[in-house]
Amino acid sequence: MTELLNKLREHFPEEDLEFRVGATNTDKTMGLALAYVQARAIQNRLDEVLGVENWKVAYKEIQGGFLCTLSIRINNEWISKEDGASTTDYESIKGGISSAFKRVASSGFGIGRYLYNARNSWFPIKPQGKGFVFATTPKLELNDKEPKKEKLPDKTEDKPLVLDFGKYKGYTLEEIYKKDISYIKYLRDKSRDVNIIKTCERLLEGK
């Protein structure tokens, strides 16, 4: 089992990664790059390592999103894990299903989990539709065993972060705290952005 799980958790080539703008500076010129493995690449990995007959997925619609159950068969025993995601701004149903699948692959079986060790890197962004996309393709950089402290670009220092996702897109964390403290707790527990986590902790501690 360990050998199969290690193969599932191997790093992906950069062409199998995609990046989402996780937060923007107040000038909306720079965005925090969050890296994810494409759903297609995860499906290919499962096919190659386990075989098409040894994994399956099921989805359940929940309020505001989808719950995905990913099951894999090892030594003739099925092992299932669950995780969920909210619908997305673009192609909300398809995006929500895809996000739930990618999330359970990572949280349940460690597929692509190494991306949580990516450095907090900021890149130029440009408007697209109701949100933002990167003006240039971000480059993935993983932290060393002793992560170096990353600094925000000069224009972002001492300025509040503005979310570029979810139901409070366009709000600062301070504004969200005044409106919905439960969402701040959610971000503290689920966010992959160290700056967002630390700010949420500071707000919840009343500092």
Rank of each mutant, 00 (worst) to 15 (best):
D158V: 01
L204T: 05
I196E: 14
D164K: 02
S191R: 07
T172E: 12
K190E: 14
S182Y: 14
G170L: 08
F165V: 00
P160D: 10
K207R: 14
I197L: 03
K178R: 14
I176K: 04
I181D: 01
V162K: 06
D180H: 07
L163H: 06
K178Q: 15
K159T: 09
K190Y: 08
L204C: 09
I184S: 03
N195K: 03
L163D: 06
K167L: 09
L187V: 01
I184F: 02
L203Y: 01
I184N: 01
S182T: 15
D164W: 09
L161A: 08
C200T: 03
T172W: 12
Y183I: 04
D164G: 06
V162Q: 08
Y168E: 06
K178Y: 05
K185N: 12
I196H: 06
Y183E: 15
P160V: 01
Y168D: 03
K207S: 09
S191W: 12
L161R: 09
R188F: 13
E205S: 11
I196K: 03
K169E: 09
Y183P: 02
R188N: 07
N195P: 00
R202S: 13
K207Q: 10
K185T: 08
I184C: 01
F165S: 00
Y186N: 11
K198H: 09
E174K: 11
K207V: 15
G206Q: 12
E174H: 11
C200H: 05
G206K: 10
V194Y: 11
Y186I: 06
E205G: 07
D164I: 00
P160W: 01
V162A: 00
